[in-house]
Design a protein around this nucleic acid. Structure first.
Length: 426
DNA sequence: TCTGGGGTCCTAGGACCC
DNA sequence: TCTGGGGTCCTAGGACCC
């Protein structure tokens, strides 16, 4: 038996200021200017250009708190346009797949790519190649980190973000301690707020200190996730590349309201709409749900009106993806938790215990089910062709007073030819 | 009558990620 | 006045069983 260790080489490709970069694609005027993109309801800042970061605008900060800096510095502001970002994301991922089909799409703007087939010497060059091709074909700038484990490639990526070249490889470096020493503990993948607090209390302030902490201490004082992170920092791969997309286990549709909602009727409309969206989503993925949760809450930031938050879960006797049934059940759940006299800020619907709809045939399946399935299919097809909610249920309402704010949308829809910006050649 | 010890399964809540 | 949305996994503790 030989002990020649097969070392992996994993690249993490991360799009720079992704939402901002997407907006810039279609709006060259904002290329060099400070730009931010806001979350739903224009609530928080969720993407910042480098120029905006330099101004001190913080990630996740409420928009109104940064408004002064924004106005003063003429920062360009956009409401988020998720269908645009999703579309660009697919283009980026398609481009990456040309380098290796062993890819894990980790989020809308990140992917892990297996580069183990390349030699230690080649791998950094390949990184540069990937970066320039993605930029050329999609217009999106990226940062690339390459290392032996996912956690280390995150570290490398973190460093690459600050470099002009945009590519950092830790492959072939004998002692990475001096590098890890400069990475703050809260910047390590898998170390969040709580763990940061705990580690700091125990004298661990950077990635090197965590890496060199004894196994027994980590095992005793944290859980499997904590020890996995430490192992990965040591270059021992514990978190595999997940190259096959597994079916999701739950589906949430939730929104904050554009205005506070007090009436039961409006809350009902919102819940009916979210239920319809969620049903459509799981149908498109051939899933059925066995359990429906509805939650409502008032703002946690303004309790002068009293805080109320509650949820209700109803289990179904037979798993379904039938909109009518899901809406009906969700409204029953809402009825059970609604209380008069509160200013509701947010509500949502969660479908859980999802499973494959093809395994859902049972003793009680009938011709009626078949008819309902066909009805759902034709609703989905119509809505796909003519826009969501062309066909809806009466309970979903038409006025939608509670709908989101979206003041600064660029209104770019890559699926709608007529809304694309025009280029005038002179 | 004694009510221990150990196993499984489920769930709510917490922590983390983007 | 105004503070996002959508996921996954782990764990502790309860219920139940023998």
């Amino acid at each position: 038996m030989s002990f020649t260790q097969y070392t992996k080489k994993i690249a993490l490709i991360d799009c720079n200021s992704f939402y901002v970069s997407c907006e810039r694609l279609f709006n060259p005027k904002i290329r060099k200017k400070p730009v931010v993109v806001l979350s739903n309801n224009d609530g928080c800042i969720i993407s910042r250009s480098n120029e905006a970061k330099t101004l001190g605008i913080k990630m996740g900060e409420p928009y109104f708190k940064e408004k002064e800096i924004i106005v003063k510095n003429n920062v360009q502001v956009f409401s988020s346009n998720y269908s645009l970002y999703g579309d660009i994301s697919r283009r980026v991922m398609r481009t990456l797949k040309r380098f290796n089909s062993d890819i894990e799409i980790y989020s809308i703007d990140e992917a892990f790519l297996d580069l183990s087939n390349y030699s230690d010497k080649e791998v950094e060059k390949v990184g540069h190649e990937i970066r320039s091709i993605v930029l050329k074909w999609t217009g999106i700038p990226t940062s690339i980190g390459i290392a032996k484990t996912k956690t280390l490639s995150k570290v490398a990526n973190h460093i690459a973000k600050k470099k002009q070249s945009g590519v950092v490889s830790l492959i072939g470096i004998k002692n990475i301690d001096p590098i890890l020493e400069k990475v703050e503990i809260n910047d390590v993948w898998g170390v969040g707020r709580q763990l940061t607090k705990f580690y700091q209390k125990n004298g661990i302030y950077n990635a090197k200190q965590l890496k060199n902490k004894s196994n027994s201490w980590i095992k005793k004082n944290s859980n499997v996730l904590g020890s996995r992170t430490a192992m990965e920092l040591r270059g021992i791969s514990c978190i595999d590349l997940e190259t096959t997309v597994s079916k999701r286990k739950s589906c949430v549709v939730s929104r904050s309201f554009g205005k506070r909602v007090e009436s039961f009727q409006q809350l009902k409309e919102a819940i009916a709409n979210y239920s319809l969206n969620a049903s459509e989503k799981i149908r498109s993925e051939s899933l059925v749900t066995k359990s429906i949760t509805v939650f409502i809450r008032t703002s946690p930031f303004q309790n002068r009106f009293g805080f109320y938050s509650n949820s209700k879960t109803i289990d179904l006797p037979i798993a379904t993806n039938n909109s009518i049934e899901i809406v009906k059940t969700a409204l029953n759940a809402l009825e059970a938790i609604f209380k008069n006299g509160y200013r509701y800020q947010k509500s949502g619907v969660m479908l859980s215990h999802l499973s494959d709809s093809s395994n859902n045939k049972n003793l009680f399946s009938s011709e009626k089910d078949e008819k309902i399935n066909n009805l759902m299919k034709s609703i989905d097809n119509t809505n796909y062709r003519y826009g969501r909610s062309t066909l809806s249920l009466a309970s979903a309402g038409v006025q939608k007073k509670w709908n989101m704010r979206k003041e600064y949308s660029s209104k770019i829809d890559t699926a709608d030819f007529y809304s694309l910006p025009k280029i005038i050649v002179t």
